[in-house]
């Protein structure tokens, strides 16, 4: 019986059909999705912090409005993703509790600091650029609510990378100090950005199963290569230098070759030893704890109101 269901499920997924919340699914599929979608949601929420840092210091009112709208979008995206996750039978507050306790992971990139305004440009251009590359294939993922959330996210994200690149471009064409700021930001964000695609294919434990289930569509290295191929000419266009001495164009393959990636650093940051891991989690915990009385009050008020309404109805009857 179970075997039968599993075969039907796999055939169904293989034919590019969508799984919906109430459909039968293997336990491991559900668990993989809960892990991936909640990590994705946490990344959106923690990702608000490094950029949110600069809302109060944005250098023009237009930039301030753009940045607020952008960071607000990340909150929205976190929310769409938590919603998708809830269709799998987990409560959002419990998922968030796992983030706050440090049990759940989020994208390591957000454990790096945003030190100057140029970092806002670099984050939009590189980090959002890498995120979009990861996310576009997810719009066709086999789980319906996740795929639909990603369609919405990708549609909204399209301005994020463009605003980041525009900031970088403006800085690169600006004063000497601004140019230096832009190059410095690229230097610091380049390697963490290309690490965002995850470990190399020969060392990526969950990839094969996720590919078979149509949750993942391209391998980590494929996406990384695509990102590098697209981004290097963009840097050249605005006169910035990618901080990789080994970077070179390979005429034969039609791809850029890059230098070795420091996976030790990647693992260190994942293990909690990045420059800002503690700040980020502390900030999330503080917001949540400071908000407890507010959430309780709203709940209590809703109950009081419902009770009053019920009493009025009884009196009227």
């Amino acid at each position: 019986m179970e075997m039968d269901l599993l075969q039907r499920f796999e055939a169904y997924v293989a034919s590019e059909k969508k799984i919906e919340p109430k459909d039968w699914m293997p336990d491991a599929y559900r668990k993989t999705l809960i892990r991936q979608i909640s990590q994705h949601a946490h990344s959106e929420i923690v990702g608000m912090l490094p950029e949110g840092n600069w809302i109060s210091r944005a250098p023009s009112l237009k930039r301030k409005a753009i940045l607020m709208a952008k960071v607000q979008d990340e909150a929205g995206h976190g929310l769409y993703l938590y919603s998708a996750c809830e269709t799998l039978g987990v409560q959002r507050d419990d998922t968030i509790a796992d983030l706050h306790s440090g049990k759940a992971k989020y994208s390591s990139i957000f454990n790096y600091p945003t030190l100057t305004w140029a970092d806002i440009g670099a984050v939009g251009w590189l980090v959002d650029g890498a995120a979009i590359m990861n996310q576009v294939p997810l719009c066709k993922c086999s789980y319906g609510p996740y795929a639909r959330a990603m369609v919405r996210v990708c549609k909204e994200e399209s301005f994020h990378q463009r605003q980041g690149f525009q900031i970088m471009m403006t800085l690169a064409q600006g004063t000497e100090e601004q140019k230096a700021m832009a190059q410095d930001a690229l230097n610091r964000w380049w390697w963490p950005s290309i690490m965002m695609f995850g470990p190399p294919d020969d060392n990526s434990p969950n990839s094969a199963q996720s590919m078979a289930w149509n949750i993942k569509r391209f391998s980590n290295d494929e996406l990384r290569q695509k990102f590098i191929d697209l981004t290097v000419p963009q840097a050249e266009l605005i006169g910035l230098t990618i901080p990789d001495a080994d970077l070179k164009w390979n005429e034969e393959t039609g791809h850029y070759e890059h230098g070795p990636i420091d996976w030790d650093e990647f693992n260190r940051v994942i293990a909690g030893h990045g420059p800002c891991n503690k700040e980020r989690l502390d900030a999330r915990n503080k917001a949540w704890d400071d908000g407890a009385w507010v959430r309780e009050a709203a709940g209590a008020h809703a109950e009081k109101r419902a009770a009053r309404k019920a009493a009025a109805n009884t009196a009227a009857a």
């Binding site: 929420i45 608000m48 709208a69 929310l79 908000g291």
Partner: peptide, 17 residues
């Protein structure tokens, strides 16, 4: 703008922003 990312609940973060 200082509330962005620090609200009591995600929905309210979006509202204040």
């Amino acid at each position: 703008g200082l509330w962005t990312g620090h609200g009591p609940v995600l929905e309210e973060d979006i509202a204040l922003t």
